[in-house]
C-alpha cells in the first residue's frame, strides 16, 4: 500500500502541465475524450497519439508509468483486437481453413486499439499531473454554475472537500484495522472468491462505524464553529486563468480540428 499515491498516478513535478489551471485541464481532457468519438480517420488518431506523447514528455512524468497505465485494459485490448481481426466481414487477405482475416478487420482492430489506448492515456495525463486537492477544487468550480438550476452545488462542493479530507484518515484506519484483524487470525487472501469477498466484512464494518462516528463528531464541531448549511463561503486558494492555460486550450483546439480533416495521404 503506497500512502502517497491514493489518487492513483499523481507524480509530483514542476512541469508546465502540472502548473495548468485544474479547471482548464479537466475540461480540455473531457473535451478531447468526447472528441475521440468523432475522429474517423487513422490519420486523425495518429495526430492525437502524437499529441498525447508530447503531453507525457512535457509533463515530465515517468514514461514507463504511462505505458503501465494500460495494464488494466490489456485483456480487453487483446480480446478486442482478436475479435475484430477474425470476425469482421470484408475482403479476405489471408485464409487458412476456417480462419479468414479481412482488410476491414485489420483496419478496425488498429482503430479500436488506438482509441482505447488514447482514452487511457488522456485520463492518465489528467490524474498524473493533477493532485487530489486541485482535482477537487477544479470539479467544485465546474459544478458551481449549476446553482442557477437550484442544484445545491455549494453543499456538494463541501461534501467533496470533506470526503477528500477523510481519504488519508480512512486509509490509515483501514490499514490499522486490517493489521488488527490479521493478528486475530483474519485471512483476506485465501479461499474461493465468495469467501474472500466475505472475509472483508471484519474490515468494512468497523471502518464504516468509525467513519460514521467521525462524521457525527465533525458535524457537531462544524456547528459549534458557526457553520450554517447553504451559507456563502469563500475559497482559500483562488484559481486564475493564465497565459499558459490559454496556450493549452488553443493547442488542444488546434490539434482536434487538425485531426478532423480527411487527409488524402493515408
Amino acid at each position: 500500500m503506497n500512502r502517497k499515491n491514493f489518487f492513483g498516478q499523481y507524480q509530483y513535478s514542476n512541469s508546465p502541465l502540472h502548473l495548468l489551471d485544474p479547471r482548464v485541464k479537466i475540461l480540455s481532457i473531457f473535451y478531447i475524450i468526447v472528441f475521440l468519438f468523432f475522429v474517423k480517420s487513422l490519420w486523425g488518431y495518429l495526430i492525437l497519439l502524437a499529441f498525447v506523447i508530447i503531453l507525457v514528455l512535457l509533463s515530465k512524468v515517468n514514461f514507463a508509468s504511462a505505458i503501465r497505465s494500460l495494464k488494466p485494459i490489456l485483456y480487453l485490448l487483446i480480446f478486442t483486437v482478436v475479435f475484430q481481426i477474425f470476425f469482421t466481414p470484408g475482403n479476405v487477405v489471408f485464409s487458412f481453413h476456417f480462419i479468414k482475416i479481412t482488410k476491414e478487420g485489420l483496419n478496425l482492430a488498429i482503430y479500436i486499439a488506438i482509441r482505447l489506448m488514447l482514452l487511457s492515456f488522456f485520463t492518465f495525463i489528467l490524474t498524473s499531473t493533477t493532485s487530489s486537492i486541485e482535482l477537487s477544487d477544479g470539479f467544485q468550480a465546474i459544478i458551481s454554475p449549476l446553482k442557477i438550476i437550484h442544484f445545491p452545488s455549494e453543499d456538494v462542493a463541501l461534501m467533496i472537500s470533506i470526503s477528500l479530507q477523510f481519504v488519508p484518515i480512512l486509509f490509515e484506519e483501514a490499514d490499522r484495522i486490517m493489521k488488527a484483524q490479521m493478528s486475530r487470525g483474519a485471512d483476506f487472501n485465501s479461499g474461493g472468491i465468495v469467501n474472500r469477498a466475505k472475509s472483508f466484512l471484519p474490515l468494512i464494518l468497523p471502518l464504516l462505524l468509525n467513519a460514521f462516528n467521525r462524521a457525527d463528531q465533525l458535524a457537531i464541531a462544524m456547528e459549534a464553529r458557526g457553520f450554517v448549511v447553504g451559507g456563502k463561503r469563500t475559497p482559500y486558494r483562488a484559481m486564475r486563468i493564465k497565459v499558459k492555460d490559454c496556450i493549452f486550450i488553443l493547442s488542444t483546439l488546434a490539434v482536434t480540428l487538425f485531426s478532423l480533416f480527411r487527409w488524402t495521404i493515408i
Binding site: 470533506i162 477523510f166 457525527d216 448549511v229
Partner: peptide, 18 residues
C-alpha cells in the same frame, strides 16, 4: 443536514478508499 453532509462525505471517502 450538517450531519447528512458530513456522513455523505465519509461514505464517499470510504468508497474511494476501498
Amino acid at each position: 443536514t450538517t450531519r447528512y453532509i458530513t456522513r455523505i462525505g465519509v461514505v464517499a471517502a470510504l468508497y474511494f478508499v476501498l
